[in-house]
Simulated scan of single mutants.
Amino acid sequence: MPAPETPMFRWTHQAQEELETLLHGHVAERSFPCVGAKAALARGTLDVLACSRIDSAWDDLRIHDGLVRFAAAYRAEPTLFRSYAVVFEGPDGLDEPAFEIALWERIQSLSDKDVWRGQSYDGRVSHDPDSPHFSLSFGGEAFFVVGLHPNASRPARRFARPTLVFNLHDQFEQLRADGRYESMREAIMVRDEKVAGSRNPMLARHGELSEARQYSGRVVDGAWRCPFHYAGGSDPA
């Protein structure tokens, strides 16, 4: 006989359906600027995981499990426009500094689990958050994170629930190799400017400035220091 449904089981399945639908609807909105996310949604390759709170470690093992599976699936079939979005039910009252703290707490915890589980760091990128070649790595694949939350100052980063979208670094390299990166980047910036009234001052190309400054969406100055520290071995990049 199948195991009886527990309250947690019922919550998880209900939350998964509700939060996945919520994010898909948000990305599908005409004003949403990221054409890459729209392409992933259209292709059915925008994976969503519903979790409880961004300021809690409760779901970190589930998130890391999903990232490792996502990385392995990409290596088996390295097609463009895939994203792994973790949508948290709350809290929805975090201001930008508080969201940034919670984002880096989750990232640090996930990275520590990657080390604990014996995953190697992607050798194409640096794990030093001060390096212009920095990216995160989970399951041996480099990732760039985009944070969304209700109180983001940039409209493009504003969403009803705290969310971390993990994008594969290799996909940006594929787009560069195909000669499509600059045109896609410009399209996103133009759409963002149309919504916000100005271009995002935090956007930079990989290799110019550390991408860590962009993750939370908060505008930071030159004195900002990333709280991330990789707990594994020496820097591969």
Score class of each variant (00 low, 15 high):
P2V: 15
T6F: 03
T6H: 10
P7W: 11
Q14W: 14
E18L: 14
E20N: 06
E29D: 06
C34P: 13
G36M: 14
K38Y: 04
A40Q: 06
S52L: 09
D55C: 07
S56Y: 11
D60H: 03
L61T: 13
R62Y: 06
A71Y: 01
T79H: 10
L80A: 10
V86I: 09
P91Y: 05
D95M: 00
A98S: 11
W104R: 00
Q108G: 10
S109R: 13
L110M: 09
V115R: 02
H127S: 07
H127D: 04
P132T: 09
H133V: 04
S135N: 11
S135F: 08
L136H: 05
G139L: 00
E141Y: 00
F143M: 07
L148P: 06
H149C: 05
H149D: 08
P150R: 10
S153G: 08
A156T: 06
A156P: 00
T163R: 00
D178P: 00
I188Q: 15
I188C: 13
M189N: 13
K194L: 09
V195D: 13
V195N: 06
V195M: 15
L203R: 14
L203I: 15
A204S: 11
R205L: 12
E211Q: 03
V219M: 06
A223I: 02
F228R: 02
H229A: 14
G232N: 12
G233D: 13
D235A: 05
A237P: 04
